[in-house]
Structure formats: C-alpha cells, structure tokens
C-alpha cells in the first residue's frame, strides 16, 4: 500500500530545505518548480532539485516533483528531472485527459531503459479540470493520485476561500473520480499556519469526504495530517471485530451476520480489511488495545 497521507511541498530553490526535506516525516515530498520559484530562479531550481534527487537519501519518502504547467515549461522540466529518477511528477493545472497524454509522451522520451516508471499525480485546480476529472483520472495507468488545488480553483470561480462551501463540489468530484478510477485522492492544503484548531477540523472533514491524504505546505502540519488520516485505536478495534465475526460466520456456515446490531456485508468487510492493512503499514497494530 502506497501511503500518501501527506504530500509536503518544498521550494525547489532552497538548498537547506532540499537537504532536510526527508527528515520532516512526510509520506511524500513535493519538490516545487512551479509557484514557489520565481521565474528567474527556474533554471537554478531545476538544477538543484535534479542534484538533490541524485544525491540525497530521502529514506522511505516518496519523491515527487511539481513541474510547471504544460503551456509554460513542463517539457523542459520533464527532460531535466525524469533522468534524475523521481518517483512521480505532480502536474499542475491539468484540464483534460489530453494534457496527461502529452505529459506521458514527454516522460517516455526522457526515461532511461530499465528506469522505474515515473508516476503521475494530477493536480486539478481549474473548473475545466474539475468537470473532466474522471476522464483525467482514467487517462493513463501512470496516474496514481489526483489532488485538489483549491486556491487557483476558487480564483478561477471568481470567489474566495472561506470555511469550505465554495470548494465542496470540487472536493467530492475529485474523491468520487479517484475512487471510480481506483487511484488516491489528495485534498487541498490548509493554509493558515496559526490556526491549529481549524487545521484539525479541516483534516477531519477531508477524511470524512473520502480523501486519502492532504497537501501540506507547512512542515508543522505533517503530524496533524498523519494523525487525522491514520486509523484510530477504536477504528482498528472495530476492524478486528468485523474480521473475527466474519471468520466465525464462515466457520459456522452462516450467511448474514451482524455486529453491534448492524449488518456486516462485503463492503464493510473490505473497509475493515483496508483499515487493518493501513494500520499494519503504519505500525499501529499495538493501538488496538
């Protein structure tokens, strides 16, 4: 199971951050060549990120690079970065499936024979992208996740970020499209670094909608997001009980079975099994007591 609870952004032109990004605990690091880097710094950032990918050991962190948009310098970014073996590229402002096809072509042109396939995370941040998000999610097998970029999206809508109604539809569309395509959905970042309470609420809401993780732009948010997207002790215990009840039903040859007065059917068992798998990956199995 690929964990992508946190996609933590690191400016591509900050050597200190590039050196230390691996120690901040995020599941995935996103080395940013786009918005965090001023136009005249783009070449330097490409060079620095490439060097970091080749030389720095990021341990178990997934290494993702956010390239510039397709109509800006995506091709140049891909040609420079793909040979440095990132795990994935985060493609911004994806509007349609054709955008993905174009990116895949450029990746294929730069991949060395035998190189581990570079995956794609599609960043959806335009109204057109939201409208097309299922076809984008299904556009290519390299796509492993789809993320919402709500700041640009609300700007395109001509509104402002508030406590969430303006992006509600976009969030649910992305969660739904990703689930339908069998990939992960990643929520937009929480941008107020001073509002810890708001952060916890926002994470809980994203989890409730079905997101599997969140973009993080401040390393201080990593722990809260992980906590929010990790199974709680109560959830793990529930999952164990579901699995035990189902096993009992199978052993006894009974069909329908209930737990705490609720029917246990296939989707519930699958959810319990996924939860236990996640708990195992996270080393949370001790938490069941």
């Amino acid at each position: 199971m690929e964990l992508r609870r946190t996609l933590m952004f690191v400016p591509g032109n900050s050597p200190a951050m590039l050196q230390n990004a691996g120690v901040l605990g995020a599941d995935s690091i996103v080395f940013d060549l786009e918005d965090a880097v001023a136009p005249r710094e783009k070449d330097a950032a490409r060079f620095l990120v490439g060097g970091a990918l080749r030389t720095v050991d990021y341990g178990s962190c997934e290494k993702i690079v956010r390239i510039n948009p397709i109509d800006v310098s995506a091709e140049k970014d891909i040609a420079a970065i793909v040979p440095c073996r990132p795990d994935a590229l985060l493609v911004p402002k994806v509007n349609c499936a054709e955008d993905i096809h174009q990116v895949v072509k450029w990746i294929e042109a730069s991949e060395a024979p035998g190189q581990k396939e570079v995956k794609i995370v599609a960043l959806i941040e335009t109204p057109l992208g939201i409208s097309n998000c299922y076809s984008i999610a299904k556009a290519h097998p390299r796509i492993v996740a789809m993320a919402l970029g709500a700041e640009d999206y609300t700007a395109y809508l001509g509104t402002q970020r508030s406590d969430g109604p303006e992006i509600y539809m976009a969030r649910t569309m992305i969660v739904n499209a990703a689930a339908a395509a069998g990939i992960q959905s990643v929520d937009t970042p929480f941008t107020d670094v001073l509002d810890d309470e708001g952060l916890v609420k926002d994470i809980a809401f994203a989890k409730k909608l079905g997101f599997k993780g969140k973009i993080v732009i401040n390393p201080r948010h990593v722990d809260a997001v992980h906590q929010g997207f990790s199974p709680s002790a109560a959830e793990i215990e529930w999952a164990h009980r579901v699995v035990a009840v189902i096993k009992l039903a199978e052993d006894q040859g009974t069909g329908a079975i209930s737990l705490d007065g609720k029917m246990i059917d296939k989707p519930i068992v699958e959810r319990a099994e996924r939860l236990l798998q996640l708990a195992k990956v996270l080393g949370l199995e001790g938490g069941q007591s």
């Binding site: 230390n20 901040l24 390393p219």
Partner: peptide, 11 residues
C-alpha cells in the same frame, strides 16, 4: 521557533 528541522528535533 519556526524552523521545521529544529521543531522536528524538539519534538
């Protein structure tokens, strides 16, 4: 302290 590395160490 805002430096994320120092915060990591402190934590």
């Amino acid at each position: 302290i805002k430096d994320p590395v120092q915060l990591r160490i402190a934590q």
